[in-house]
Simulated assay, not measured.
Amino acid sequence: MEETFAVTEAAQIPKQRGEPLLETAVRYVEDRHWDVFPGAWLEAVGGVQRCSCGDAACAAPGAHPAREDWAAQATGSAVAVRAMWSRQPRASILLPTGRTFDAVDVPETAGFLALARMQRMELTLGPVTLSPDRRMRFFVLPGGAVKVPELVRGLGWSPSSLDLVAVGEGGYVAGPPTRYGSRGAVQWACRPTAVNRWLPDVEELISALAYACGRDR
Rank of each mutant, 00 (worst) to 15 (best):
R215N: 07
G126H: 12
V202W: 09
V36T: 11
P177C: 09
R215K: 14
M84E: 15
G143Q: 08
G39F: 05
P89A: 07
L164F: 02
W198V: 13
H64T: 02
W41D: 11
S131R: 07
S161G: 14
L162M: 06
V26Q: 08
F139H: 11
A114F: 01
N196D: 13
G39W: 06
R27N: 14
E3M: 14
D35E: 13
V106C: 00
W41F: 15
G170R: 05
S182H: 13
T8G: 04
E169G: 03
M84P: 05
A103K: 03
E9Q: 15
Q119C: 04
D35A: 13
G144K: 09
V48H: 13
A110H: 00
K147M: 14
T178I: 07
M84C: 05
G170N: 06
L155G: 06
R183Y: 12
P20V: 06
A71S: 08
I93W: 10
T4G: 01
E203L: 03
G154N: 11
S158T: 06
A189T: 00
F139A: 15
M118T: 04
S161W: 10
T100V: 03
R117P: 01
A25W: 12
L130T: 01
T97C: 14
E122K: 13
T8I: 13
G47V: 10
Q119W: 09
G76M: 12
W198I: 11
P38W: 04
M118Y: 02
F101Y: 09
P127A: 15
G98M: 10
G111L: 00
V140L: 11
R183G: 04
G46C: 08
A166L: 09
G170S: 06
D216K: 00
D201L: 08
G156R: 11
Q16F: 03
R153Y: 10
R153E: 15
C53A: 03
N196W: 13
E150N: 13
D31L: 06
Q187T: 13
L164D: 01
C190M: 12
G170Y: 06
V104R: 00
D201F: 07
I13G: 07
Q12L: 15
P159M: 14
L141Q: 15
A103R: 04
G170L: 06
A6I: 04
L199W: 09
L94R: 04
A56G: 05
R153H: 11
R99P: 07
A189D: 01
G168K: 04
L123P: 01
R99Q: 14
G46L: 08
A78C: 14
D35Q: 13
T97E: 05
L123E: 08
